[in-house]
Design a binder for these strands. Structure first.
Lengths: 333, 333
DNA sequence: TTGTAAGCGTTATCAG
DNA sequence: CTGATAACGCTTACAA
């Protein structure tokens, strides 16, 4: 792996153009005044030698990496990719590099990734992970790495956050639905180990159902659409109706398709609501009613907040995004 | 942004535990022999002071970053996220960090990102981008950064690649279809600026159609499913059939849905084939026939190849993945 | 087993 | 306008 042996250094550039290190450094940083002649001379030899400054050495000397650490549970979900995409957009615009740390939904990994973020010397971190708790963020802080936490309500000296409001909207939708006196069975699809967002929403679901004394249940499903599809093909052999709340499109779609493929009518018999809607909510028939948060915008905003935080200019450290309900074909209301 | 001022250094650890820098270094690298006593002493003060080695300084001293640079066109497509996910999986397993560089489908950006990869001092790069050409990879090589290129057939001293075979399979499918003598109009959906993969496939599509003298055309569509849906709702007012080849699921789904919402029968009147199938091909009704490559596996394999390449143990530098045709409900054959 | 000191490739502070 | 030279935080021969 010793593949950097023959890197051209600033020293060689200096020698080749007959100036000192310092001068070359000034040229590549476009700072200080110098003769047009020497600048030209240096720039030419830089081009000739194909010199590229070592980001490592620069970072060490300046104590600044212009790198942001991004912690996510996985790259494999559309809503997470959207956040990531928003982050990359602003990062590019503002000239930051990105270091990616994936926790695979495991607490142990998450903690290890936080350690890595610290040793990575990043200028800041954006953390979109459900496993970490306040203590972990504080730790980041104690190593002076400013952070924006997505989907967890924490604030600190150098910690800001962006939270989503799904619960409130869900309660609203449910209550409206319940008021129709439609004799439905309300079902929340529980996915094991899928984080706080889902847990919070589930809790709210239960409390609304209980408060209104309606028939409800929590069902465990696998976090795989094809598995869920098969499970529900079986389920619909004996159950002919239900109002199902699923946490993302592909799970919701699996139920929708299973219902239809079992000869049930959607939304007349079976209704399905997708919690975290993406563009894929629109491609099913009927299309999926869903709750929407513009995740790409969340990513963008996280970056902007982080930059402000670093400058000490972040006045409001908590930003809350309320989800929008998009009623489509999979629900009556 | 000077947020690393008060970082605890190895020097402070050394002083606090009454040993030299070298000893502390040995402890954190678990190398060399030493008294159990001194090791314990050092480890204790490391814990007490909350010392974390600076990855930067380590990298500079060892000339090794244990970081892999990943270049992708965007984080916003499912098939790209899948590759990314495969990469992260192996990276974690093998202890590599990831630096992410997004080119936004622009040649200019792509070149800039390659520069960044070089200055980043990464131990290797995985490049999944359609804009770059052989010359750009050579450049990476000349800076001694080994690379695995996805979706472009290049080989070099320290360059390996993984290529996909869509064209061949598509030709096979088309020819089989054409042999049925079904009087279809064959339509390839051209998306502007969507890279070599699509261009190659389109070319093959045309040549097969021409060779068999069938009625075909290339249509421009927008790389947005809702836009495409609207365009095709209009299109199907005057066109009542067609065999459509779209390059990814959401575009294919848009056409499928537009056909159905226009009262046409799929696959009787309209047939749709999705080139780069993902799990979302299964959620439409009818489900989308698609060509599949396990993108996550491609990501994993790229990492393994890169690791081997670095060790000089990569015997076969080109790996080709043939796509599988999954016939589902959106096509007759 | 442990310490000393010379790098790693930059930046930045001084003088000149 | 330019050149020495001391950091930056760590690794690693080489000595002791």
């Amino acid at each position: 792996m010793n593949n950097l042996k023959d890197r051209v250094t600033i020293y060689e550039v200096a020698k080749a153009s007959g100036v000192s290190l310092a001068t070359v450094s000034r040229v590549i940083n476009k700072q200080g005044n110098m003769t047009e002649a020497t600048r030209k001379k240096v720039e030419d030899t830089i081009a000739k030698l194909g010199y590229k400054p070592s980001g490592l050495a620069q970072a060490l000397a300046t104590n600044r990496t212009t790198t942001i650490g991004v912690v996510i549970p996985s790259a494999n979900y559309v809503y997470i990719s959207s956040v990531l995409n928003g982050i990359t957009e602003v990062a590019k615009e503002k000239g930051f590099n990105l270091s990616l740390f994936v926790t695979s939904h495991s607490k142990e990994d998450a903690v290890r990734m936080v350690e890595k973020v610290i040793t990575s010397h990043v200028d800041g971190a954006i953390i979109f992970d459900d496993e970490l708790n306040e203590e972990d963020y504080k730790k980041l802080n104690s190593y002076s790495v400013p952070a924006i936490v997505i989907n967890n309500n924490v604030e600190g000296d150098k910690v800001g956050c962006i939270t989503f409001g799904y619960e409130h909207k869900l309660a609203e939708i449910l209550e409206k639905k319940i008021k129709t006196n439609d004799d439905q069975q309300y079902v929340f699809l529980h996915v094991h180990n899928c984080g706080r967002l889902l847990a919070r929403t589930e809790k709210r679901f239960s409390s609304v159902c209980e408060a209104n004394k309606v028939n409800y249940k929590i069902m465990n499903v696998d976090d795989s659409s094809s598995r869920t599809y098969h499970d529900f093909m079986k389920y619909f052999e004996t159950h002919k109706k239900g109002y199902f709340v699923a946490y993302r499109d592909s799970i919701a779609a699996a139920i929708l398709d299973a219902a239809i493929d079992s000869g049930l009518k959607v939304p007349e018999d079976v209704e399905v609501l997708s919690l975290i809607g993406t563009k894929y909510a629109k491609i099913t028939r009927p299309s999926l009613s869903s709750m929407n948060v513009d995740m790409q915008d969340v990513g963008r905003r996280a970056m902007y907040m982080l930059i402000d935080l670093n400058k000490g200019e972040l006045s409001t450290k908590t930003y809350r995004v309320e989800s929008q309900y998009k009623k489509r074909g999979s629900t009556k209301e």
